[in-house]
Design a protein around this nucleic acid. Sequence first.
DNA 1: GACTTTTCACACTGCACGGTGTAGTTTTGT
DNA 2: ACAAAACTACACCGTGCAGTGTGAAAAGTC
Lengths: 198, 198
Amino acid sequence: MPDQPLRPSSVRKRAAILDAARERFLADGYDRTSVDAVAAAAGVSKRTVYDHFTDKDGLCRAVFQTAATTLLDTVRRAAGEELRVDRDLREGALAFARRIATGTFRSSDYAVVRTLMDHGDLTGVSPDLAGEPERILASQLSVLAEAGLVRQGKAQRTAEHFGALTFMLALNQPHLEESAMDEIFVDGVDAFVRAYGQ
Amino acid sequence: MPDQPLRPSSVRKRAAILDAARERFLADGYDRTSVDAVAAAAGVSKRTVYDHFTDKDGLCRAVFQTAATTLLDTVRRAAGEELRVDRDLREGALAFARRIATGTFRSSDYAVVRTLMDHGDLTGVSPDLAGEPERILASQLSVLAEAGLVRQGKAQRTAEHFGALTFMLALNQPHLEESAMDEIFVDGVDAFVRAYGQ
DNA sequence: GACTTTTCACACTGCACGGTGTAGTTTTGT
DNA sequence: ACAAAACTACACCGTGCAGTGTGAAAAGTC
């Protein structure tokens, strides 16, 4: 089965469409974004969009899939590498937050996932991705808790609180300067450490 | 100027349209909600909708206006009456959260405001309502801070953290049971008191 | 250079929906 | 009872947009 349509230009165009779609979806929302607009933004014929993705919903699913994958990957890696038992909690938590921000905010993956989540039929795309980042974080926080660095208790809730004090707050603020975002993280981590550190 | 169209039925229909619109907007989003659907849900002719509100955007603004007004009113009253210097912080904060929930979640005012905020031209409807609840809360927290009940510092940020740990978390959870929501509030207030109480 | 795949421009269909016009019917105040 | 105001049913227009068909051009492969 040599059904590998790996024409390099094809791959490039596909990526361009995905990028443009993510950008447009994020800026204008799924409904307000026309496929024509995506095609134009990608510098591609509208027909080509439909050649790569069966319909608008399929395009949406692909964008979501991509963003979700890199998001989860970033969270997993950052959690494992920054939230260590041999490190000061405040320091590690702040580094974690910053890594998520630079790794997913810049490419808008986090925001895109939140934006497209309820919109469209993402059923089956990523099995209950909702709350998955928190679950990953919770599992790592459990490790820290057993080492006595973090207050014992509901790990899931602890993770939710961390996310609320940092990412959620940052995402709910539109037009955010780099410095303002970092201030949110510093303050959020500060409050988190006071509430959950020991 | 006898330009008072205060026909009682007219008032009732107007309210019915507003209610139906809020419900539909919240369930399906602004774009996915057709005026026909609102009219049907309100048990009213489509033409009547356009008689009361010039266009879909006007309807949106009216819904937003209404929700925002009751939201701010509820926050203001609850903050003044529950967050008092002669009361235990945890107790007051929990009562505050619960009052906001029963006062605005049940009628979806909080969620509606957040949903319609970016959508449509709300310019001039409510001058920078974004963050206004937090500002009210911040001002009340300042009072508590001066009484030594709450950690001194950026009052605005403190308010944001309270909101993040309670309302934001509750709103981001769809299909929330009454008991689950209360648990979120209890845990959130708990964390808040540890981080900001003294 | 011959062959295949991919892309493009373009024209076209169908539909959902925002918004209007109108003429008749119901509600309501006096 | 009467007239004004409010409402309804319904037909209608325009538009924006999802999605398709096609045949020719371009890009890439061998």
